[in-house]
Amino acid sequence: MQLTAAQTMITILAVALGAMATRFTPFLLFPEKKEPPKFVAYLGKALPPAMMGLLVVYCLKGVSVINKPHGIPELIAIAVIVALHIWKKNVLLSIGVGTVLYMVLVQAVFC
């Protein structure tokens, strides 16, 4: 620990305050008693799939195509997840199989 206890506590609160600003702002800007502008209602519907797309890419941002194993474990695992999910439509099955497959690939195949 480099900081004092008080400094650490203040840092934690500052981080929390920043996080809460991003979480509460939309709800404070558009309170539930008032009808939000039409474009906000539109964004509320259009954003969830787009943000899921963002999260998928965000999770893969550290994968290097140039260095070994060239993102192949991720590619295989995601291809299997997509195929399995279109076939069986079972959320936990797709996630479970995909994760175990990925662990085998990075621990035993591409290591």
Binding site: A46, P49, G53, I81, G98
Partner: peptide, 28 residues
Amino acid sequence: FVLTALFVVLFLEQMTSRENKISGIIGL
């Protein structure tokens, strides 16, 4: 990787209507 898998699957789950598909592809 379980969280990446979660996001991939929920991404697929949201690809239900035409509007959602377009928006999902815009996100990716």
